[in-house]
Amino acid sequence: MSVAETLTAAKPHSGRAISFLVFAIAIALIAASPFLPNYYVRVINSLLIYILLGIGLNIVIGYTGLLDLGFVAFYAVGAYSYALLASPQLDLHWPFLAILPVAACLGAATGILLGIPVLRLRGDYLAIVTLGFGEIIRIIINNLDWLTGGPKGIARLDKASILGIQVARPIDFFWLLLITVLVAGVLVWRLERSILGKAWAAIREDQDAARGIGINTTNAKLAAFATSATIGSIAGAIFAASQRFVSPESFTLQESVLIVLMIVIGGIGNILGIVAGAAILMLLPEVLREFAEWRILFLGLLMIFLIIVRPAGIVPRSFGPDKLIRRLFGK
């Protein structure tokens, strides 16, 4: 029996105990991070990046019900924004906080630019067009040597600093990412509960009936695309700053598929599910160190299994953050 099943099916007090347990582990992990060896902090950092990416992509897939297989393109836009504006490549050395809004806007613009033509299409074509778009961006990055450094990528990116405080060690990025994830998570969760979020759900359930109650579905879907792209782009900028190196290899189709996988396994349409999915995605290779190459095979099979047996994922949509809070602190 999965954790979520226990949470939702069992008697309230035992569910509450488990909620508390999970919550306590999360708090303990956060509190312990400063004292962990760098290696583990780096693992947790990539976990947080994946959560951030998942929060972004989930808006399109989970809330609006559109399959976007080119999400990694927005991640690349953000990463290359930082790489170009803070490196010897173009000899630009902008501060991190100035790049972040630029990356966010570029991401949103790319999202809208892609969205305007393709969002009119039938839903299943969208998957294939976004997939093609992701590949186009990767091929362009790979071949635009004078700008992006081609397959070699861009190295020696500037150390990031925020308001004079240098952000360079893994632990610095841990705090930066933690704050970003929390802020993005809360905003997106509130967005889901807003009237726009309800419209997204209506589009997911029945696009035509959604039009019938006066929803301009093209605009609502564009908003979803743009918000999702913005978050992906911000994740990319932080990723570039923490690696201080970018290359096309980080932005392959497989990366897009992994994020989709993570969302579906964790629980489609639920922020808590993304955390669970990211944890599985990141912790699995740590647990199965000897079978690292089996990880993706296992994840692929797990996804098929879950879609058939438990389509709601590990943490179902109905067990959202509000329910967790009620379990923890409410009656």
């Binding site: 019900g65 399959l67 297989l69 299943d124 598929v257 989709v260 692929g300 996804m303 058939i308």
Partner: peptide, 27 residues
């Protein structure tokens, strides 16, 4: 098993099949 499910479900499943086959052959 997904024939009467949402339209997204079989596509996601085929994505999982694709990934599993590629990595399976890689292994």
């Amino acid at each position: 098993p997904l024939r009467n499910s949402t339209r997204l479900a079989p596509m996601l499943s085929s994505l999982g099949v694709s990934l599993s086959l590629v990595t399976g052959i890689q292994i």
